[in-house]
């Protein structure tokens, strides 16, 4: 009996570690992409707002990866996990590593992600694991604001000039095939769902669909058909972009192993 409990706890721990890496890696990689805009945004207010969003996401990365390291129990810190894993070990959604493109594409990526982020964090606030609920509580305050902002810009640019509408439609069409992955369940999701620690990904889809459909309609944009969806990020099969993100992000830690900064 005692052995069974230990085995079960170990399975949950591995599943939980995977889940926490996903949350942390999404925040880290999207935060990185947003920070690439620094000083190059189309208006000063946008520079400020993007830096603010990136800052929130990096803060959330510290919390999720910090907890991941704790759960893993091998003494790895949030920084170790962020800076010393290779691309195959990253668990972020492919959507977050898509290149920035023009500002419209960055905002569309942000909106599609924020809508999911908002829904998943809302569910996580009720997690049976108090540590997860606590992080979700803090992060969802920030993400409510991210969603409010990205949603508003998608609507304003969609229902703006002919050019801004065309750009937003193109961004939506390009990014849409990367949204299905948000709702794909991996084997590690089942025990977490059963234990009430984290929602089953599929369970988030209806709310996300409604949020997105409502905003796209107001934005006068056409929701693409749900055709083929790319996936792999949650299992560490990424696009070629992630390798370059990590080459940049991890440069100092890799070039000067063991140095403290």
């Amino acid at each position: 009996m005692a052995t069974a409990i230990i085995v079960e706890a170990a399975v949950d721990r591995a599943a939980l570690f995977e889940f926490l890496l996903r949350m942390g890696d999404n925040a880290l990689i999207l935060g990185h992409r947003l920070s690439e805009w620094c000083g190059h945004a189309p208006a000063l207010e946008e520079d400020i707002a993007l830096a603010n969003t990136a800052l929130d996401l990096i803060g959330q990365t510290q919390l999720w990866l910090g907890l991941a390291g704790e759960v893993e129990g091998r003494g790895r810190s949030a920084d170790d996990l962020a800076y010393l894993r290779d691309a195959r070990e990253f668990r972020n959604l492919l959507l977050t590593e898509r290149p920035n493109g023009d500002y419209g594409k960055t905002m569309m990526r942000q909106f599609l992600f924020d809508a999911w982020h908002y829904v998943v964090l809302k569910a996580l606030r009720a997690s049976s694991d108090a540590r997860i609920a606590e992080i979700a509580e803090k992060a969802s305050k920030e993400v409510s604001y991210h969603l409010e902002r990205s949603r508003d810009l998608v609507i304003r640019l969609g229902d703006g000039t002919a050019e801004s509408q065309a750009r937003m439609q193109e961004a939506l069409d390009d990014l849409w095939p990367y949204t299905g992955e948000m709702f794909v369940s991996e084997t590690s999701d089942e025990p977490l769902g059963a234990a009430g620690m984290a929602p089953e990904p599929q369970s988030l889809k209806a709310e996300w669909d409604a949020l997105v459909a409502e905003a796209l309609s107001e934005a006068t944009l056409k929701k693409p058909a749900d055709g083929h969806m790319h996936k792999g990020g949650k299992r560490g099969i990424h696009t070629e972009h992630l390798g370059y993100i990590l080459a940049e992000l991890q440069f100092l830690q890799r070039a000067y192993p063991g140095a403290t900064w």
Binding site: S35, G39, I48, A51, I58, T61, Q62, D79, E248, W261
Partner: peptide, 23 residues
């Protein structure tokens, strides 16, 4: 250097600083 900051904390501080400059 924001995208190459050596730790998460340094990255967050530098982001906050550059955001201040824009402010």
């Amino acid at each position: 250097w924001i995208t190459r900051a050596p730790t998460l904390e340094r990255k967050a501080i530098l982001l906050a600083k550059v955001q201040d400059e824009a402010g």
